[in-house]
């Protein structure tokens, strides 16, 4: 048997992930968003669509996050959407980097600020599905890049 990463075995279908899967947060579309982000994974038909509204100081003041697909992408999108308000786009990207490190290499020294995204580290036990967990963050990063290109 191949060695499994040393992460909790229970919890992929635990309460937190399933709660977000069943009732995703912040899933009402915004019609005046500043940042528009969408990413599609044709391998399994997963899709994540995120929108951000920014205030006068460039901080997130409105979030919409919708997704289609498996429990992981739907939970990841919903959990992420709860962590975006009041952050600048650079802070969102910083969180994205931490989340990516968490998912790819395990808990780093600076895992603070990831909130319930920490629950998704259970997905590390299923390497082929890590990309499902990262898809909404990848979408957001691309959306932020596109927003910067448009406004600068």
């Amino acid at each position: 048997m191949p060695q499994q990463p040393d992460v909790p075995l229970d919890g992929l279908y635990g309460d937190l992930i399933m709660a977000h899967y069943r009732s995703p947060h912040n899933n009402t579309p915004l019609d005046d968003a500043d940042v528009e982000a969408e990413e599609f994974n044709p391998f399994c038909g997963d899709r994540a669509t995120l929108q951000l509204k920014l205030d006068a100081h460039g901080k997130v003041c409105g979030v919409s996050a919708r997704s289609e697909g498996c429990s992981i992408i739907r939970a990841a999108t919903s959990i992420l959407s709860d962590l975006l308000n009041d952050k600048s786009l650079s802070e969102v990207e910083e969180m994205g980097q931490k989340f990516r490190t968490l998912m790819q290499s395990g808990l780093g020294e600076e895992a603070d600020g990831l909130g319930d995204l920490l629950a998704l580290q259970v997905v590390r036990r299923y390497p082929v599905r890590i990309k499902c967990a990262l898809l909404p963050m990848v979408a957001l990063e691309e959306g932020i890049k596109a927003y910067r290109a448009k406004t600068h």
């Binding site: 391998f43 429990s71 499902c132």
Partner: peptide, 26 residues
């Protein structure tokens, strides 16, 4: 109620190997 990848993962926990996805036949 369940996406094929979730079906695949839950079956795998029970030692059952199936394929999930588009089977290279989109």
């Amino acid at each position: 109620k369940a996406h094929p990848h979730d079906i695949g993962t839950i079956l795998d926990e029970q030692g059952i190997a199936i394929r999930t996805g588009h089977h290279c036949a989109q």
